[in-house]
Amino acid sequence: MIGTAAAVFLLMNGRIMGASGLLGGVVDGSRKGAARSEALWFLAGLIGAPLLWHLFRGAPPTQLTSNVAVLIAAGLCVGFGTRLANGCTSGHGVCGISRLSVRGITATVFYLVAGAVTVLVFRQMLGVI
Protein backbone atom coordinates (compact mmCIF):
# COMPACT_ATOMS: atom_id res chain seq x y z
CA MET A 1 0.00 0.00 0.00
CA ILE A 2 2.84 2.41 0.84
CA GLY A 3 4.61 1.67 -2.43
CA THR A 4 1.40 1.87 -4.44
CA ALA A 5 0.57 5.25 -2.89
CA ALA A 6 4.03 6.52 -3.83
CA ALA A 7 3.70 5.11 -7.36
CA VAL A 8 0.29 6.74 -7.91
CA PHE A 9 1.52 10.10 -6.62
CA LEU A 10 4.54 9.95 -8.94
CA LEU A 11 2.84 8.75 -12.11
CA MET A 12 -0.37 10.76 -11.78
CA ASN A 13 0.82 14.00 -10.19
CA GLY A 14 4.55 13.89 -10.89
CA ARG A 15 5.36 14.33 -7.21
CA ILE A 16 7.74 12.53 -4.89
CA MET A 17 5.90 11.10 -1.89
CA GLY A 18 8.12 12.35 0.91
CA ALA A 19 6.30 12.95 4.19
CA SER A 20 8.85 15.38 5.64
CA GLY A 21 9.07 17.39 2.41
CA LEU A 22 5.31 17.66 2.01
CA LEU A 23 4.74 18.69 5.64
CA GLY A 24 7.87 20.84 5.90
CA GLY A 25 7.11 22.72 2.70
CA VAL A 26 3.67 23.60 4.07
CA VAL A 27 4.75 24.68 7.56
CA ASP A 28 7.77 26.74 6.46
CA GLY A 29 5.89 28.27 3.53
CA SER A 30 8.42 27.17 0.88
CA ARG A 31 5.78 25.24 -1.10
CA LYS A 32 3.51 27.63 -2.96
CA GLY A 33 0.53 27.56 -5.30
CA ALA A 34 -0.51 24.21 -6.77
CA ALA A 35 2.31 22.34 -5.04
CA ARG A 36 1.07 23.64 -1.70
CA SER A 37 -2.57 22.73 -2.24
CA GLU A 38 -1.58 19.25 -3.47
CA ALA A 39 0.55 18.77 -0.37
CA LEU A 40 -2.38 19.86 1.81
CA TRP A 41 -4.70 17.36 0.11
CA PHE A 42 -2.10 14.63 0.60
CA LEU A 43 -1.68 15.48 4.29
CA ALA A 44 -5.47 15.52 4.74
CA GLY A 45 -5.61 11.95 3.40
CA LEU A 46 -2.64 10.87 5.48
CA ILE A 47 -4.22 12.13 8.70
CA GLY A 48 -7.86 11.54 7.73
CA ALA A 49 -7.79 7.92 6.56
CA PRO A 50 -6.28 6.60 9.83
CA LEU A 51 -8.80 8.80 11.70
CA LEU A 52 -11.65 6.99 9.91
CA TRP A 53 -10.03 3.63 10.67
CA HIS A 54 -9.79 4.69 14.32
CA LEU A 55 -13.48 5.65 14.41
CA PHE A 56 -14.79 2.46 12.81
CA ARG A 57 -12.27 -0.21 13.76
CA GLY A 58 -10.81 1.02 17.05
CA ALA A 59 -7.44 2.48 17.96
CA PRO A 60 -4.43 0.79 16.39
CA PRO A 61 -1.56 -0.08 18.74
CA THR A 62 1.02 2.58 19.55
CA GLN A 63 3.18 2.87 22.65
CA LEU A 64 4.63 6.35 22.53
CA THR A 65 6.59 7.31 25.63
CA SER A 66 5.03 9.72 28.16
CA ASN A 67 8.42 11.26 28.93
CA VAL A 68 7.87 14.84 27.72
CA ALA A 69 11.59 15.62 27.47
CA VAL A 70 12.16 12.59 25.24
CA LEU A 71 9.10 13.44 23.10
CA ILE A 72 10.24 17.03 22.53
CA ALA A 73 13.87 16.08 21.90
CA ALA A 74 12.81 13.36 19.46
CA GLY A 75 10.39 15.65 17.63
CA LEU A 76 13.03 18.38 17.29
CA CYS A 77 15.62 15.90 15.97
CA VAL A 78 13.20 14.39 13.46
CA GLY A 79 11.92 17.78 12.24
CA PHE A 80 15.31 19.47 11.97
CA GLY A 81 17.14 16.42 10.65
CA THR A 82 14.69 15.51 7.90
CA ARG A 83 14.57 19.08 6.59
CA LEU A 84 18.37 19.43 6.69
CA ALA A 85 18.76 16.11 4.88
CA ASN A 86 15.85 16.89 2.55
CA GLY A 87 13.99 13.70 3.23
CA CYS A 88 12.97 10.92 5.57
CA THR A 89 11.95 7.27 5.41
CA SER A 90 9.44 7.80 2.60
CA GLY A 91 11.38 10.25 0.42
CA HIS A 92 14.92 8.92 0.80
CA GLY A 93 14.00 5.37 1.80
CA VAL A 94 11.09 4.35 -0.44
CA CYS A 95 11.34 6.83 -3.33
CA GLY A 96 15.15 7.22 -3.29
CA ILE A 97 16.30 3.63 -2.96
CA SER A 98 13.83 2.47 -5.64
CA ARG A 99 15.48 4.75 -8.21
CA LEU A 100 18.93 3.73 -6.92
CA SER A 101 19.66 7.28 -5.78
CA VAL A 102 23.05 7.50 -4.09
CA ARG A 103 21.73 10.24 -1.80
CA GLY A 104 18.69 8.18 -0.82
CA ILE A 105 20.76 5.10 -0.06
CA THR A 106 23.33 7.12 1.92
CA ALA A 107 20.63 8.87 3.95
CA THR A 108 18.94 5.57 4.72
CA VAL A 109 22.21 4.03 5.95
CA PHE A 110 22.81 7.08 8.18
CA TYR A 111 19.38 7.18 9.81
CA LEU A 112 19.18 3.42 10.27
CA VAL A 113 22.60 3.28 11.93
CA ALA A 114 21.84 6.37 14.05
CA GLY A 115 18.48 4.87 15.06
CA ALA A 116 20.04 1.53 16.01
CA VAL A 117 22.80 3.22 18.03
CA THR A 118 20.22 5.44 19.77
CA VAL A 119 18.12 2.44 20.81
CA LEU A 120 21.29 0.64 21.94
CA VAL A 121 22.41 3.57 24.10
CA PHE A 122 19.05 4.76 25.46
CA ARG A 123 17.41 1.35 25.91
CA GLN A 124 20.16 -1.19 26.53
CA MET A 125 22.61 1.08 28.39
CA LEU A 126 20.59 3.87 30.00
CA GLY A 127 17.17 2.22 30.13
CA VAL A 128 15.39 5.52 29.35
CA ILE A 129 13.18 4.27 26.52
Binding site: G79, T82, A107, Y111
Partner: peptide, 16 residues
Protein backbone atom coordinates in the same frame (compact mmCIF):
# COMPACT_ATOMS: atom_id res chain seq x y z
CA UNK B 1 20.51 15.61 8.98
CA UNK B 2 19.91 11.90 8.47
CA UNK B 3 21.95 11.11 11.59
CA UNK B 4 19.89 13.55 13.66
CA UNK B 5 16.68 12.15 12.21
CA UNK B 6 17.82 8.62 13.15
CA UNK B 7 18.39 9.71 16.76
CA UNK B 8 14.87 11.14 16.99
CA UNK B 9 13.40 8.11 15.27
CA UNK B 10 15.14 5.76 17.70
CA UNK B 11 14.12 7.81 20.75
CA UNK B 12 10.44 7.91 19.84
CA UNK B 13 9.78 5.21 17.23
CA UNK B 14 8.15 7.84 15.01
CA UNK B 15 9.22 9.20 11.63
CA UNK B 16 7.30 12.03 9.89
Amino acid sequence: GSGLFGVGWGLSGLCP
